[in-house]
Design a binder for these strands. Sequence first.
DNA 1: CTAGTTAGATTACACTTGTAATACATTCAT
DNA 2: ATGAATGTATTACAAGTGTAATCTAACTAG
Lengths: 124, 124
Amino acid sequence: MTQVPQISDAEWEVMKVLWAKSPCTANEVIEVLESRTEWKPKTVRTLLNRLAQKEAISYTLVHKVYAYFPLVSADECVKSETDSFLKRIYGGAFKPLLVNFLKEEKLSPEEIKELKNILDDKSK
Amino acid sequence: MTQVPQISDAEWEVMKVLWAKSPCTANEVIEVLESRTEWKPKTVRTLLNRLAQKEAISYTLVHKVYAYFPLVSADECVKSETDSFLKRIYGGAFKPLLVNFLKEEKLSPEEIKELKNILDDKSK
DNA sequence: CTAGTTAGATTACACTTGTAATACATTCAT
DNA sequence: ATGAATGTATTACAAGTGTAATCTAACTAG
C-alpha cells in the first residue's frame, strides 16, 4: 500500500518548501527556510539527505547542481499524519476534536459559519 | 504557563490508562495494557518511570506498593497536542483539516448532521 | 595553473523513544 | 532464618531526530 515514510517535524518544514515549489536546489530551500527558522545551511542539507534516503524526495542534476522534488504528495502525507494523530489522541474519532475546538473557543463566528457551509455543501 | 511535558506515543497509552482511572498500581496499569498491546510488564514500568521523571505523573505508597496518578490533565495534553499538530500540519488552521476530512469521505451523513448540530449550538 | 569557494558526502554527538533485561531489596512462606 | 517471588531501580541498546561540522571534489577567479 505504498505507505508514506515517517517524516519528522524538521523534515516536514523542508517538505512544505518543496510542495510549494519544486524542483528546488538546496540553496533555494535553504533560503526559504532561513526566513522561517534558525537553521544553518548544513542542517537543511542534512534534512534533504535524510528525506532522500527515506525516499520522500529525490533529485536530478540541473546545471551541475541537484534540484530536489517530492516523491510523495502533500495530500498523502497530510492524510497519513492526520489519521495517526486522530487515532493516537482522539481514538480515531473526529467529533471530539471539533468539540474540543469549540470548547477552547478556537473558532470565530465567521469560521463556524464557514464550516457550516462546507458541511451543507457536502450533505447536498 | 505550566507547559505540559512531551509525552511520546507509547507513554500516551499509559497516560490514557491513568486518566481513565487513578490511582493505579503498576500491575493494574500493566494488566490494562496487556489487553491492548504486546508490551512486556518491564516495558510498562519503564514508561511509568519516564512519565514520573518528566513529571507527567507521580505516585504514593499505598499498601507498600506505588500507586500512580496523573499530574497533568487529559484536557491540557490533548489541547497541547492538537495545537502543535495543527500548527505542524495545517499551519494552525482548523478549516483545512475539516475540508480534508470531507474530501476523504471520512464522515457519514449522520456524523455530518451531528457536527452541524454542534456548530448550531455553538453559534447560538 | 593555483588557491579559495562551494556543493555535496561523510561523520558527529547528545537526546528521545521503543523495547526491554538485569540487579537489588523487600516480603512471604516454610 | 532462608530461599523464592515480587516490586522497584538501574542499565542496555539500537533507531530516529535535531543540529550541525568536517572532509573532499569540482569550479572559478586571478
